Amino acid sequence: MTPLTIDRLVVQNDRVICEVTLAPTAPRLTTPALAARITHAFPNLPRHACVNDEGDTFGAVITHTTLPHVLEHLVIDLQTRADPHPDAVYVGTTEWLDEFARRARVEVSFTDDLVALRAFRDAAHFLNEAVVRYAS
């Protein structure tokens, strides 16, 4: 089972737009245990700035947020790790295109389109592995 599938990637001048689908058997939301597995590999994620109803950081919602939202923050984190400029700022958004069909759109800014595309690939791979290991 592949919990999250990237259906489409579109590179625009200032962002990459990614459409994803969650498998019918995949969890829609993270849990504290899954969040712990994710933050073990990506310890900066909880400190990411994040607009949400519970706080100013991603850490306020990481234990109960959607998998596409986690993908957004993983992509940002991977781009930050790869960027030689420590002051680079990345922003992203996540929204359901069709929540019933489990389809979402994730948009993330970039400074290098190839790094951003690699970040989406690697983030999706990591997230899928984390979800599969968590479920077993």
Rank of each mutant, 00 (worst) to 15 (best):
D14R: 10
Y90G: 07
T30R: 04
R105I: 09
T93S: 13
S136G: 15
T2P: 13
E95I: 00
L78R: 15
F120P: 04
T39W: 00
Y134C: 11
A101F: 00
A130I: 09
T66Q: 09
D112A: 08
P3C: 04
D7W: 00
L9M: 10
D113N: 11
T39D: 04
C50A: 14
D122Q: 14
A26R: 02
D83Y: 04
T66G: 14
L4E: 08
G55P: 04
A26S: 13
A82G: 10
V106G: 03
G92Y: 02
L29R: 10
T94M: 04
M1D: 13
E95C: 03
A36L: 02
L97E: 02
L22S: 05
H125G: 13
H64N: 14
L71W: 09
A135G: 14
N128D: 15
D53V: 02
P86M: 10
R28T: 14
F42A: 00
V108W: 01
T65R: 01
F126Y: 14
T66S: 15
F110I: 09
A116Y: 06
F126W: 09
D14A: 11
P84S: 13
H85T: 14
H85K: 10
D122E: 15
V16P: 05
L45M: 05
A88M: 10
V91C: 06
A33I: 01
H69I: 05
T2D: 15
F120S: 14
I62T: 00
L4Q: 06
A130M: 08
V20Q: 08
I38T: 02
P32R: 00
P3G: 07
P27E: 06
R133S: 15
L22G: 08
F110Q: 06
D87Y: 08
P24F: 04
I17C: 03
A116F: 09
A88Y: 08
F110M: 05
V61F: 08
P84C: 09
F58C: 02
L22C: 07
V11N: 06
L34E: 03
R118S: 11
T65M: 01
A41V: 06
A101V: 00
N128Y: 11
M1N: 11
D113W: 04
E99N: 09
D14K: 07
P43H: 08
T57G: 02
C50S: 15
D122M: 06
E129F: 03
C18M: 07
D83C: 10
W96S: 08
A116T: 12
R47S: 14
H48G: 10
A82L: 03
T21I: 05
T80I: 12
F100K: 05
A26G: 09
R105N: 00
P46G: 02
I76F: 00
A88N: 14
P43M: 10
T2I: 12
L45F: 04
T25R: 06
P43A: 06
V51A: 14
A104Y: 03
